[in-house]
Structures are given as structure tokens and as C-alpha cells.
Design a protein around this nucleic acid. Structure first.
Lengths: 225, 225
DNA sequence: GCCAAAAGTTGTCAATGGCAACATTGACTC
DNA sequence: GAGTCAATGTTGCCATTGACAACTTTTGGC
């Protein structure tokens, strides 16, 4: 993967290191987790000296913050695309936000981990904070629109935001991390995700369409053995 | 805090190191996070040589696993005590499980972090896995009882377990970590926790009792400014 | 009191983060 | 086209840490 960098036309010195570092870092995190990430390891992988990464990131945390920022950007885009694809119904769009977040967590584990890793969370960074705010805003807007169209009409709007964030983070964590999900008895993780969304959002037209003739959700298809 | 160890009657060599290490480790994690934990640092804090911890824990991860195990034990006890205090109604008891988990996360951040830190999650350990299973079982039993008494009667039971786990983890993470909760507009985190539980479990008699004359939850009390 | 095991110590090594000083490249100017 | 400067990369160094080995001290059972 990252070896491609070695034969590609390099614009200068030794490649456009910054992007290569971020890309390789994402690979390492996806394979071995944030703990396995070391600047020197990246430098070795990319055949540069151990101090080269320092020109682009002040330290390890700096690189992690950049990854997390990119993660929030991508995640918001994915969620908005998901909502767009869900059509005009605000509740269906809201549901799609949650669905997209879970998809993001499972499809891009490196980015998801960068967003959630305690080491990253403890770094104060205004740009990262702003991007997190944009992520919250996406859920806030979606929840507000859903509420206007009849979802929990009497609830406090900000409580619905907290509920949305909490449900999204909980579901993504549970479904993307086998150390948690191993304790669940299920066959198809996508159907389980649908059930979770049903329980969170309520059964929408879209979710009913996917299992039109059952009252008990995806249970029959999901149960193991 | 941990200095108390130095004057207490010591039954041994230089303290009952194992417990002292665990206690000091919990302090360090609560103050500075799991990343700040180092065996050598603990040894310094407890005035023992840098290799002394090795007699009790094979490595850093070994100590973390022990902390996480203890965390799951304590957490299950707290949740069961909470359910017990909630009386006989299964739905109220189920609600109390979630409430207790959030309380646990906020009251014992060190244990909560040890349970959830990716570095710990990636360690294969059968004893830890069993204790996690017991934690799941507590929620599974609670959810099943609630369902038998009318909560989501038509849902798949295992989907309800996933929903419970997801909601508990999400709420605890959101409410115990300011890097997330800073993006929410609220005054009283306890009232927000109640609102989250209302939205997850539905409004129970108990939650109605605490705000008997409002349709909109704790909104009025919670809204900032 | 003896002796074996438990508990703790000193010493060492490799890996890492982080810093400083130096080298090279490329781009811009005249 | 030569000179200059900033960007980029390199080598070297040091402190910290995890991890391991070899040795020493204490404890508790006999």
C-alpha cells in the first residue's frame, strides 16, 4: 500500500511526507491500534530518517490530532451524504445520520479510533474542537428537524441532542469493537444495527420497508444457530 | 493520599505493594489518564525500586487488566445495588441499572477509563472477558425482566440487550467526558442523565415522580442561561 | 535456627520521544 | 544563470520507559 509512494513521481526531496505519514498512520491504527503508532515506526516504514516527521507534526499527538480532525470532517460528510440519500422525510434523514455514523466506524476504524481515543480526547485543540462542534451540529440539526416532524415532540431539544450523540457513540462503539460485541448473540451485524436504530428512532417507514412482514424486527434473521 | 501507605504498619518488606500499586495507579489514571501511567512512575511514587512492580504484574498491561477486572466487578455490584434500591418494578430496576452505570463512570473515572481504554480492550484475557460477560448479563437480565413487564414487548430480546449496552456506554461516555459534553448546552448533568434515561427507557413512574408536573422533562431546569 | 520461596534491588539493553545542529533541495530573485 | 533563503530531511544525542537477568533480603514454615 504505502510502498506505492516509493515509485510515484515525487515532487521533491523524498515524497510529500505529510500525507504519506497520515496515510501510513491510518494503516497502522487500523491494523494495530493507536497504541502501536510511533513516529519512528512511521519514518522507518516510509524510508525517511527518524526526525523527518517532526517537520510536519510537532509530536505524536500532533499527528493524532490531524488524523482526528480529518476523521471528523469525513464523518460529517458521510453523515450528510447519508441523510441526503434518505430523502426528504426528516425522521428518515435523522435515522440515516445514525446509520452513517455506525457505517463510518466500521468502514474506517482508524479514523473512528482517532476520534475516540482517550489520548486524543485529552489534547486541547481549538480546531479539533470546532470540528467536533460541527459533528454535534449535524446531529443537532437532524434531531431538531425530526422533532419538528413529530419525533418526541414534547422532549427538550437539547436532551434529544444528547440522546442522539449518546446513541450514536454507543452503537458505533459496540458494533465496531469485537471486544464488546463478542458478548452479544447475533448473526448479521447490519440487521442488528437496524434494530438498534429502530429502538432509538422508532420504526420509520424506511425500516418498516426493509422488514415489511414482521412485528419483531429482524429477530428471526439475526438470531444465531 | 497514597503517602498514607508509608506510615501505616507494614507487614513486610516495603508495603503490600500489589494493592498499593493498584491504588496509586487508580489515582494516576483519575488525575492524568491511562496514558500517564508508567510502572516506573508508580514505583517512584511508592518509594520502591523500578523493578519491584514486576513481582506483582508481568507488565504494564497486566496491571491495567487487573484494574479493569476490579472495575467490572465493582460496576456490576453498583448496578445491582442500584436495581435493588429501585424496588420491585422491573422497568424501574432496569432504569436503575443504566443510572448506576452513569454514576459509576462519573464517580470512579479511573475504573471507567480502565474498562474502556482501547489499550485494555485489545488485551486478550479470559478472566476479564468473563467479568465483561457478567456485566452484559446484568443488563441482559434487567432488559429481559423489563420486557416481560411490558417494555418493548415485540422487540427481539437480544436487540434489547444491544440497545441497553449501547445506551449505557454512550451515555456514560458522553456524560463523564467533558471533551464530549462541552458541546452540549445544559446546567445540571444529573437532570440531563434523567432525560437520557427517559428517552431510552421511556418515562417510568419513578422518573415521573421526580418531575410530576411537566410534560417536557427536565428541560426548564436544565437549559443554560 | 534452617531453608526455600516470596519480595525487592541493581544493572543493563533496546525502543521511543524529543531536541539541536547540520545538510540538501528547490524556488525565487536579480 | 548565480545567489540566497526557506522548506525539508539527516545525523547525533539524551532522558524515559518497558522489559529482562542476576543478585540480595526478608518471611514463614519446618
Amino acid at each position: 500500500m504505502y510502498l506505492l509512494q516509493t515509485w510515484r513521481p515525487m515532487a521533491y526531496h523524498h515524497g510529500n511526507l505529510r500525507e504519506a505519514l497520515l496515510a501510513r498512520a491510518a494503516e497502522v491504527i487500523a491494523e494495530s491500534g493507536v497504541e502501536a503508532l510511533s513516529l519512528r515506526g512511521l519514518a522507518r516504514d516510509l524510508d525517511v530518517s527518524h526526525a523527518a516527521p517532526r517537520r510536519h507534526f510537532a509530536d505524536r499527538r500532533g499527528l493524532l490530532v490531524e488524523l482526528a480532525k480529518e476523521a471528523f470532517r469525513l464523518c460529517v460528510v458521510m453523515m450528510e451524504q447519508g441523510a441526503e440519500a434518505a430523502g426528504p422525510d426528516p425522521v428518515a434523514r435523522y435515522r440515516a445520520l445514525g446509520r452513517s455514523y455506525v457505517e463510518f466506524a466500521r468502514r474506517d476504524p482508524a479514523f473512528f479510533r482517532a476520534m475516540h481515543h482517550p489520548e486524543v480526547r485529552s489534547i486541547p485543540n481549538s480546531e479539533l474542537s470546532e470540528l467536533q462542534g460541527a459533528w454535534f451540529a449535524a446531529l443537532r440539526d437532524g434531531a431538531a428537524a425530526a422533532q419538528r416532524s413529530g419525533w418526541h415532540p414534547e422532549a427538550d431539544p437539547e436532551a434529544l441532542v444528547a440522546f442522539s450523540v449518546s446513541a450514536a457513540m454507543g452503537a458505533a462503539q459496540l458494533l465496531s469493537d469485537e471486544s464488546w460485541s463478542q458478548h452479544l448473540d447475533f448473526n448479521d451485524i447490519d440487521l442488528l444495527a437496524d434494530d438498534l436504530l429502530d429502538l432509538t428512532v422508532g420504526r420509520t417507514q424506511k425500516s418498516l420497508m426493509s422488514t415489511p412482514n414482521e412485528l419483531t424486527g429482524n429477530a428471526a434473521k439475526r438470531r444465531a444457530s
